[in-house]
Each structure stands twice: as C-alpha cells, then as structure tokens.
Amino acid sequence: MAFRHLTKTIHHTVYPAISPSNPLNSAHGKTVIISGGASGIGYGIAQAFAAAGAATVVIIARRQVALDEASTKLCAEIASMGNKTVVWTYLLDITKEAAVGDAFDDIRKRLNEGVEPNTQLKDADVLVTSAAHVGQGETTLNYSPQAYRDAFETNLFGNLNLTRAFLKPEIPAIPMATLDRRAKQTSPFLHTHTHKQKIILDVSTLSTHVVFPGQATYATSKIAFTRAMQQLQNEVDGLPGTPIRIHSFHPGAVFTPAIASQFGGKLEGFDWDDESLPGGFAVWLASPAAAFLKGRFLLSNWDVEELIALKEKYEEDPEFGTLSLKT
C-alpha cells in the first residue's frame, strides 16, 4: 500500500538538524529511561541521548548478558566523547507491573540521594518505550490466541506499566470528564510543579497506518498503545503549563536483531534505515523545537525543518498527523 509522506525530503540516516551533537538538541541534565535499550533501535536511542549530553541514561532489558554488554559498550563510547553521562541498567520484564513500579521507585531514590530536605524532588525527564514483541509471517487467523496475548502483554500492557510508573507523581492530578459529565476527583499536587516537563516517546510503527502482510499481532497491539497515548495526551492537556507531552513515531526500517530473527536475513532490494536515524529523531523530539508536535504520529524519516514549516497547519488542525478516519 502506498503511503503519502508529509515531507518531500525523506531521510535514512542522521543529519545535522537532528544530530545529537547539535547544541539545539542538547539533553544536558536530563534523565532518560529506555526500555529495550540494550540492542537495536533502543540502543541507538541510548547512544543518541548520551551523545546529546544526558545526565543519566537508564537502560531496561530482559537479559542480563545484553544489559552488561550494552552498558560496557555505551560507557566506553561516552568516555571516548569526553561526556559525563552516567549509565544505569535494570533487568526487568515490563509485563510485570509491580516490578516496573519498584524499578522506577529505585530510580527516583537514586536520583534524589543527597538532595536536601524540603527541596523539590528530582524525577526522570524522558521515557522511551522501545521494547516490543514482534510477530511476522502468519495470516491473521493462523496466529494463535496466545500469540495475540503475548503481543498485547508487551506492546500494550507492558508499555502502559512503564507509562504509569513514569507518571506516578502526576497521575492524581490528571483531570477527566466522562461522557455523562462526571468529573474525576484530582489532587493539586502537580500544580506546584508546572516548570517540570516530562516527555514520552512512543516508538510505534508504520503498521499502525499501513497494512503489511503477516503483521496482525504486531500491528494491532502497537496501534492499541499508540491510540492509548493519543488518549492520554488529550487528558494531560487539561493540566496547567503543558507539563507532559507525548510523541508517537515510526523509527524507520532498521535491520535490528529482532527483525533478523523474524526474517532470517536482510531482504534483498529493501531500503533499510540506519539506527542513527531514530536515535537522532528521538533526541530532536525531546527538544523544545518539537513541542508543537505533541500528540501526533510521525516518521523518523521525515525532514524536521519541513515539519517545522508545517507548524501553523499542525496548530490549526488538531487531527492533522493523528490516527484518524480519512473521509
């Protein structure tokens, strides 16, 4: 199926406007948590935030060996750049809600070691939901019910666990009015913390828009979380000061270990993207320049300067660049 791009320029690797070394994309002082950060796209994003000067990069993964290898490699890269980014690792199954909550509580505890009493507590700044359950190769009805459950456990419920733990301090303040106009009881906690902005980067997929063969479990579970994030952005927009923004984006066609395990090797003639592309794009999305794109779906291949040129259209049309019905 053909897909109509929003920009004329299509990128396949990092370029100056989204480069982590571009001062406009600085992540100085930020704490960034990346699930699935030990390999593939997640690791590329970890590299990019480290290169952009993040204070702390937290890598979450399910295999200790992968965590150790990623941490050793990333720390060596940081040292070669002369940066001071600290790398923390957590062995974690994101489908286990209690374990996710414990991990985020520990992150907050470590961030606030040595903080003076009665001062504002530190918290993580950016959450990147990069861990994914990838399914490929069956027809929609040939996938077993368990295959669907497995995909949703990670791609929806696991990512919701991460989001819930990341926004734990803010959740009591998020307002909502139901269809019958009953308002949720909220806490004023966040109203004294409006200078702090949190960013969620949903590493989504083009499969949420385009029907690709053999991706029924992957596409349906990924679109479920991306739609949940669209819903959440609408809710948190009711908070004063725009303290939370969410961006969902297709990372590109990157030949990751997960893809290799599905296909067995690179598809000949396929135009693959470099893993530096989603890394740089994620860093740019976390910068102030991308604030107008909150709640929208993007492709990391799109040229950001052309996106900025469309800023007025984005601001005028709240459905532009979202998951919506074309009529």
Rank of each mutant, 00 (worst) to 15 (best):
residue 4 R to I: 07
residue 6 L to F: 05
residue 8 K to L: 05
residue 17 A to S: 05
residue 20 P to G: 14
residue 26 S to M: 07
residue 27 A to C: 07
residue 28 H to W: 02
residue 40 G to Q: 04
residue 42 G to A: 05
residue 43 Y to L: 13
residue 44 G to R: 04
residue 46 A to C: 15
residue 52 A to I: 06
residue 56 T to N: 15
residue 71 S to L: 04
residue 71 S to T: 10
residue 74 L to E: 01
residue 75 C to P: 09
residue 80 S to L: 13
residue 81 M to F: 03
residue 82 G to F: 10
residue 85 T to F: 08
residue 88 W to N: 11
residue 94 I to K: 10
residue 96 K to W: 00
residue 96 K to M: 00
residue 98 A to W: 12
residue 101 G to Y: 02
residue 102 D to K: 13
residue 106 D to G: 02
residue 117 P to C: 09
residue 120 Q to L: 13
residue 122 K to M: 14
residue 124 A to C: 11
residue 125 D to P: 11
residue 133 H to A: 06
residue 133 H to E: 07
residue 141 L to V: 12
residue 141 L to N: 04
residue 143 Y to K: 05
residue 143 Y to S: 01
residue 156 L to G: 05
residue 158 G to F: 08
residue 166 F to S: 14
residue 166 F to C: 09
residue 171 I to F: 10
residue 176 M to P: 11
residue 176 M to Q: 11
residue 179 L to C: 01
residue 180 D to L: 07
residue 188 P to C: 00
residue 192 T to R: 14
residue 201 L to N: 04
residue 214 G to I: 00
residue 215 Q to W: 02
residue 217 T to D: 08
residue 217 T to I: 02
residue 221 S to R: 01
residue 223 I to M: 13
residue 229 M to L: 07
residue 235 E to R: 07
residue 236 V to T: 15
residue 240 P to M: 02
residue 242 T to D: 11
residue 249 F to Q: 13
residue 249 F to P: 13
residue 256 T to L: 08
residue 261 S to H: 09
residue 263 F to T: 06
residue 270 F to Y: 12
residue 270 F to G: 00
residue 277 L to R: 14
residue 279 G to K: 03
residue 280 G to F: 02
residue 313 K to Q: 08
residue 315 E to I: 04
residue 321 G to S: 10
residue 323 L to G: 11
